[in-house]
């Protein structure tokens, strides 16, 4: 019986690099063009989401489940969440306005908070970027692609 042994390589460092900066895992594996294309797609989608929805579309406390997907895009998601906390929630930009909740309580929201379809688009773009980067970093962890003989 002719046994073909397929050497599986596993590179945790490529996965980690791919999480730190999308596409960096593929670049570490020597696949520069693929890495650049993944970087273009993931970072482009994430930035477009924040451009449309503002920093408010990444919110770890209010949209925790969405943040799980967004965090796949790497530190850029965490930095956007921190920016949301520091700028909008602490009122450093915009105007803090009172908002009556359904239970009668009054809370403060920033006038720059995104709502409705704008927030949906921003959240969806950033979450899609995160999920696609998880697929990309799993691909990077498999190690360099084998060239067909």
């Amino acid at each position: 019986m002719n046994e073909e042994v397929d050497e599986q390589t596993f590179s945790l460092s490529a996965g980690l690099l791919g999480w730190i900066l999308p596409g960096l895992g593929q670049i570490k594996n020597g696949d520069f063009l693929r890495g650049k294309l993944i970087m273009l797609g993931v970072v482009g989608m994430f930035l477009m989401g924040v451009l449309v929805g503002g920093v408010d579309c990444v919110d770890r406390k209010e949209d925790g489940l969405w943040f799980v997907a967004q965090a796949g895009a790497g530190p850029i998601a965490c930095m956007t969440d921190i920016a949301n906390d520091m700028l909008l929630k602490q009122g450093r930009v915009g105007v803090m306005m009172p908002l009556a909740l359904a239970n009668g309580a009054i809370t403060q929201v920033n006038s720059f908070k995104s709502v409705g379809a704008v927030n949906d688009i921003g959240t969806l773009f950033t979450a899609m970027a995160g999920l696609l980067n998880i697929a990309a970093l799993l691909d990077a962890m498999r190690g360099p692609r084998k060239v067909a003989a």
């Binding site: 930035l47 477009m48 503002g54 379809a117 704008v118 949906d120 969806l124 970027a129």
Partner: peptide, 24 residues
């Protein structure tokens, strides 16, 4: 930019499917 939501998006929100499909 990047702090405030983009104005004027609501009327044409469905057009944003195009850049999203391109990114995916």
């Amino acid at each position: 930019p990047f702090v405030q939501p983009l104005p004027g998006v609501i009327a044409w929100w469905w057009l944003w499917i195009l850049p999203m499909l391109a990114g995916v």
